[in-house]
Design a binder for these strands. Structure first.
Lengths: 212, 212
DNA sequence: ACCTGAACACCGTTCAAGT
DNA sequence: ACCTGAACACCGTTCAAGT
């Protein structure tokens, strides 16, 4: 039975599948080739190196973000929706998120979200420089939030590992950490993300009012 | 000449040096051993695996943050200083920053900065839950900012590579990106960090006033 | 044009042997 | 207690050979 022919897309998809199944450390050209049922060197007919293959993984994951933009909504709501859409990759591709975040993409893969964000900010009345700086702040916040969210689960095994045990922290050296241990122990990722998102949006509103 | 005896500390220091000199990808147990003038397997007398060695690298870099806290300063100034101190690691250990950020530390290495931040926020009148959420938002923002700062220079070779060329962007598909290309092309990392930092701090002040 | 096995220069880590 | 070389099971990638 003649399977579907090898292609860059199939290789990238196999890599993403492998990452999600076994983690980024499990990715090797040989494993991917084995998963696809081909010889290792066949991959190199479609991809020049492992490094650019991983760039392809990052681009593919980024391009799968589902942006549903409503141009009629208030700009603060549009910003909210776009930020949440970005966060979805941490849910759909948790183990690939680290790959996305740790690669500098010089391609146009991430350009569509940037375009939409800038358009939204400009429509809200922000100047070009402010729009770019605000976008960068937002991206930093989202990326950092995703890292916390997926970094906490490098493997899904220890589903409830307490990072800080109240009784193990020297209460004289770290009194605040000690007394807040119950709060530090648990992290509702969605709630934390929304908390920061609202603060950021309100900061933007205030900044907009100041510079008006 | 009997060189200093091998130790976990010397091994971690050698790893950090290697990372800063040649990048995180260059790190291998064999290279570290060679740099230290010992056999590979000697390392395993002091470090159980490469994985926990890299955790040691992350902890060592984190512990080198220089926090100069002034308890008499206004809490917003203290938050500013702490955030800037954190950002210093991107300057002192640029290539190690990715290692720090990509490892989940279950140790007490990062506890001192957390303690100081929480103490500052509580002294500003924030409740425990708010203090924890605000700290998490700040850490997300700082981590994301550091990633942008060091991710842009995986190697220092292309000192001025333009990521987006104005004429290469389809102006009809990406009009905003096209018109803002000059701004997107350059990034004053310190200025961008400070921009977001001020917005975050003002958001905190507003949040504090609201919940007072 | 696409596939491939052999080969090269690497990895992390186990183990048994040394002192 | 600390060091170590040999060995094992892996890597990414080059190259020459196939179709």
């Amino acid at each position: 039975m003649p399977t579907e022919p090898l292609s860059r897309g199939r290789i990238v998809a196999a890599a993403i599948g492998l990452i999600e199944r076994e983690g980024a450390d499990a990715v090797s050209m040989r494993r991917i080739a084995a998963d696809l049922g081909v010889g290792v060197m066949s991959l190199y007919n479609h991809v020049p190196s492992k490094d650019v293959l991983l760039n392809g993984v990052a681009e593919a994951v980024l391009s799968k973000i589902e942006f549903t933009d409503d141009p009629d909504a208030h700009w603060t709501d549009r910003v909210r929706m776009q930020a949440r859409a970005f966060r979805q990759i941490a849910h759909h591709y948790p183990r690939s998120t680290m790959v996305v975040v740790s690669r500098q993409l010089h391609s146009a893969a991430g350009l569509l979200p940037v375009e939409r964000a800038l358009a939204t900010l400009r429509s809200a009345g922000f100047g070009g420089a402010d729009a770019v700086s605000i976008l960068r702040m937002f991206i930093a916040y989202i990326v950092g939030s995703l890292l916390r969210e997926v970094g906490v689960t490098p493997t899904f095994a220890p589903v409830h590992t307490r990072t800080i045990k109240a009784d193990s922290v020297d209460a004289t050296l770290f009194p605040e950490v000690g007394s807040l241990a119950p709060l530090l122990d648990e992290c509702d990722h969605e709630a934390e993300f929304e908390f920061g998102l609202e603060l950021l949006i309100q900061a933007m509103v205030a900044h907009s009012a100041r510079s008006r």
